[in-house]
Computed example of a mutant assay.
Amino acid sequence: MKKLLFIIFIMFSFSALEAQNLNDYKYVIVPESFEFSKEKNQHQLNSLLKFLFEREGFETLMNGESRPEDLQRDNCLGLDANVIEDSGLFTTKMRITLEDCRGNLIFTSEEGTSREKDFKKAWHEALRRAFESVEALNYNYKADAPPATPATPETPEVVEEPEVATEVPQEEKTTPETPEEPEVVVQSEKISEDKEPGTLNFEKDGTYFQLQENENGYALYQKDMSEPFALLIRSKEGKSFIYNSVTRQGIASFSENGDLVVEHFDASKGVSVKTIYQAKKD
């Protein structure tokens, strides 16, 4: 019995230590591709990992994006994310790892698995299950924590939002039709159509959507789905939002009549695409 309690204590202490370690880091850098991928962002796996880290509260950017000023001064404020695949014939297996600026392994997730035959569904399911280990740590960045590198200056508290507006040129013409949002795994919980405090209801093409307010802005849900497919991060001015979903980034704002307007740049067509979610009247 004492041996069992000792093992449980050690496991709990190790988990708490991992959480403490992650709380000391402000950024997560996601690569554009993984070693097992055949192309950049194959099956939107890299975008999904970025989305999951952002939803958990990390400030996340793709490798190659312009870096915030404090991260340029001290790259040890960030962790490099990676996904390790060890799949068998019938099972897809993935682990998420985080390394510091010196290449030291800071965190390794539990193994996420999937038996889906479709590659995209299998990768997404295995990654989401592996990410549950990150969610369990309840990440909360310590703004007053000492820098990861002893000799580096303290990090400023205010960080500029990532520039997304340059991806949506104003001079480009919009197209009438908009690609559908990526499929989100449906959970057993359902979102009520009734308007609750802090929520806004919308409709588009006969489908109902809901914005739920949070400390950073809003989370956008589709009816009957328990997790958001997009986040709206409030800009400094407060009049617009950075729109970030699994597959795209853009700008969101509210029209005079309360409609939600989302614009993103479609690189394949070279145009700016506008999506309008009509405000649902009570």
Rank of each mutant, 00 (worst) to 15 (best):
Asp205Trp: 02
Val184Gly: 03
Arg102Cys: 13
Val83Asn: 01
Leu89Pro: 05
Val184Met: 03
Phe12Pro: 03
Met94Ala: 04
Gly57His: 04
Leu200Tyr: 03
Ala130Trp: 00
Ala219Gln: 12
Asn46Arg: 07
Leu48Ala: 05
Lys223Glu: 05
Ala136Ile: 09
Met225Phe: 09
Ala151Leu: 12
Thr60Ala: 11
Leu232Val: 00
Ser15Cys: 15
Arg102Trp: 08
Ala151Arg: 07
Gly206Cys: 07
Glu177Asn: 12
Val30Lys: 06
Leu89Gln: 14
Thr166Pro: 06
Ala143Arg: 11
Thr152Ser: 14
Asp86Asn: 15
Lys3Asn: 08
Lys93Asn: 10
Phe58Leu: 07
Leu48Thr: 06
Lys173Val: 14
Phe209Ser: 07
Glu215Phe: 10
Gln210Ala: 07
Gly112Ala: 15
Val158Gly: 10
Glu189Trp: 15
Gly103Ile: 03
Val261Gln: 01
Ile96Gly: 01
Glu213Leu: 05
Asp205Ser: 12
Glu189Pro: 10
Ala143Thr: 12
Trp123Phe: 04
Thr155Glu: 12
Ala279Trp: 09
Asp259Ser: 03
Gly238Arg: 01
Leu17Met: 10
Asp205Thr: 04
Glu193Lys: 15
Glu39Val: 10
Glu85Tyr: 05
Tyr141Cys: 07
Val184Arg: 02
Phe265Tyr: 13
Glu227Ser: 08
Thr166Met: 13
Glu196Asn: 06
Pro169Asp: 02
Leu220Met: 04
Glu99Pro: 10
Ile242Cys: 01
Ala151Trp: 12
Cys101His: 06
Asn21Met: 14
Val185Lys: 14
Asp259Cys: 02
Ala122Thr: 00
Glu35Cys: 04
Ser13Arg: 05
Glu177Ile: 15
Glu172Tyr: 14
Ser47Ile: 11
Gly250Glu: 00
Gln222Met: 11
Glu160Trp: 09
Glu110Cys: 09
